[in-house]
Structure formats: structure tokens, C-alpha cells
């Protein structure tokens, strides 16, 4: 069993299963920088996964299908923003409503188009293939690990760079961060916080869509009901652990991906399936707890320091 943990295949699996988590983490990061915890990422992934599959099945046009999936993601993001920001609905309630909506709508749409409630296997949909990277693919081990992945996987890593660039090197990123840090202050210097939050949520939906489409049009070429299995929420956890840093969020996603890959290996080696399936979720919870405890400790020590300084000032 140890040999399967050390094989190139194992590391290849980590990257493969981390892909949707990276997309979800980026989606969460952009929204949270804009001051909204996006708990509809999972739903958005599901809707886009379905949209992509159905459009590709009925038009046999892959670029069009991906385009429609992305549009669906952006629409979902703006829809969430509209109700949360414009209609002033509680964030959790908006999330609950949209998640409930997606749970029903995906099955209804799937049933209406394919006559099956479980999966889209009755219609033939398209998928993005695996890409070999020239030169690198010939390097032993490394080539096996990082070459030959799905197209979406490479886009996922590019999206980390894109997110970093967007957030820290563009005026829009600065605006999003300003609104997220202090909405009233941003408003007082003439920004429109609602508009900027909506833009952030649109980006969030865009990345969620990529993550969803990876699941139904990359990793597999079929849509299965509830196929995201809470990955959108694990993405939120990864983003929380990454402390708002795209690279950190990516590393956290890879950590959760590793938990997933370990679970896969254990499953093959006859460990009880259910216990193994729980591992990624346990790791995610542990990750959030450690991160939050650390943040709180940092905050508390800052306050203590401030109090100590104030006391010293009084004494002097």
C-alpha cells in the first residue's frame, strides 16, 4: 500500500481531484474579498455542469456548451447577489433558497430533457480531453505527474494566477477589496458597493462554473444528480484556510485533494468505504478550526498588545 502512496499516479490523482476544489476556492476567495461569503458555489457548479452537458449533447458544439455553462455561472452569481444585496435577504437564507432551487431545478431540467432523474447517460455529451505538455511529458516521473491532465486542470492553475493578478494588480481588484474591507468607507469616496459586490459575485460564479464543468465535461462526460457532493463548500473551507491569499487557497485545496486521494487509495485497499469517504470532510473541518483558532489568537494578541500599550501610555 505504501508503494501506491509514493507512485507518480498518486500525485497525478491529487492534482486531478483538487481541480474542482481550486476553482471553488477561487470563487469563494473573490466573493469573500468583496465581503460576501458565497455559499452558493456548490449549486452554481451543479447548474453549470448540467448546462454544459445538455448544450453539448443537443448541439454537439463544445465551445458553445462551455460558453453557456459560463454564462449560467455568471447569472447564478448575479442572481444570488441580487437577492442578497439588492433585496437585502439574509445571506444564509439566500444560500438555502438557491441551494434548494438548484436541487429541484437540476433534476427537473434533467428529467425534462432526458427522461431520467439520475444521470444524463441517455444523451451523448462532449468533454474536454486530456492535454499533454510538450517536452515536460517526456521527463520521467514529473511528466507523469503534471502532464496529461484535463484541459480544465491547467485552467484551474492559471485561474489562481489570474485571481492573484485581478485582486492585487488591477483597479477592479482594489475596488473589490476596499468594498469588502469597509463598504461605507468605499461608498464615501464615491464607489458603488452594491455594483462592485455584484461584479465580484459574477466572477465567483464564473469560476464556480469552470469547477462544475470540469466535473461533468472533463473528469467525466456525464452529469449525475448532486455530483458535486459538497465540493463547493470544501472550496469555501479551503479559501478560509488560505487566509484570503490565492496561493494559500490553492495549497489548501491541494491538501483537501490529498485527503481525497488518500481516501481513494485506502478504498482500493479494502478499508471500509464509508469511513474513508468521510476523510476529506473531517480534514476540511479540522482545517477550518485550526485556521479560525489561529485568526482568533492573532486578533486577541493584537487587542492585548493595544491594551498594554494604552496602559503604558497612561503610566507615562
Amino acid at each position: 500500500m505504501l508503494s501506491s502512496f509514493l507512485s507518480a499516479e498518486f500525485f497525478y490523482t491529487i492534482i486531478r481531484v483538487s481541480t474542482p476544489l481550486i476553482f471553488a476556492a477561487m470563487a469563494s476567495l473573490i466573493a469573500r474579498k468583496g465581503g460576501v461569503t458565497n455559499i452558493t458555489i456548490d449549486s452554481t457548479m451543479l447548474m453549470s455542469a448540467l448546462t454544459g452537458v445538455l448544450v453539448s449533447a443537443f448541439t454537439q458544439n463544445l465551445p458553445l456548451a462551455i460558453f453557456c455553462g459560463l454564462v449560467m455561472g455568471v447569472v447564478m452569481g448575479i442572481f444570488m447577489g441580487y437577492f442578497h444585496i439588492m433585496m437585502n435577504t439574509n445571506l444564509i437564507l439566500t444560500g438555502v433558497a438557491i441551494n434548494t432551487f438548484t436541487r429541484g431545478a437540476t433534476v427537473m431540467i434533467l428529467y425534462a430533457f432526458t427522461g431520467d432523474k439520475g444521470s444524463s447517460s441517455l444523451v451523448k455529451s462532449l468533454a474536454v480531453g486530456n492535454w499533454d505538455i510538450p517536452v515536460i511529458k517526456d521527463i520521467p516521473i514529473l511528466g507523469q505527474i503534471i502532464s496529461g491532465h484535463n484541459g480544465f486542470t491547467y485552467i484551474a492553475f492559471l485561474s489562481v494566477i489570474f485571481t492573484w493578478y485581478l485582486m492585487y494588480r488591477t483597479p477592479l481588484g482594489l475596488r473589490i477589496r476596499a468594498v469588502g474591507e469597509n463598504s461605507s468607507a468605499a461608498k464615501s469616496v464615491g464607489e458603488n458597493p452594491a455594483k462592485i459586490k455584484l461584479i465580484a459575485l459574477a466572477f465567483s460564479g464564473f469560476f464556480s462554473a469552470l469547477g462544475g464543468m470540469y466535473m461533468s465535461m472533463g473528469n467525466m462526460s456525464v452529469f449525475i444528480t448532486n455530483m458535486t457532493g459538497g465540493r463547493g463548500f470544501i472550496g469555501v473551507a479551503a479559501d478560509a484556510m488560505g487566509r484570503g491569499n490565492p496561493i494559500g487557497a490553492m495549497l489548501a485545496s491541494l491538501l483537501f485533494g490529498t485527503a481525497n486521494a488518500v481516501a481513494n487509495v485506502l478504498q482500493i485497499n479494502n478499508f471500509p468505504v464509508d469511513m474513508v469517504m468521510a476523510i476529506p470532510y473531517v480534514v476540511s473541518i479540522a482545517g477550518i478550526i485550526i485556521y479560525s483558532a489561529h485568526e482568533q489568537h492573532k486578533k486577541n494578541s493584537k487587542i492585548k498588545k493595544a491594551i498594554a500599550e494604552a496602559e503604558r501610555g497612561e503610566a507615562a
Partner: peptide
């Protein structure tokens, strides 16, 4: 610890 109650409870359900 201030961990997000919604996300933690959701993951814990799994």
C-alpha cells in the same frame, strides 16, 4: 474559535 457555523455544520453532516 469563531469558525463559520454554517459551513462547519454542513461539512459535519457529511
Amino acid at each position: 474559535y469563531g469558525a463559520d457555523d454554517f459551513v462547519v455544520s454542513l461539512l459535519f453532516n457529511y
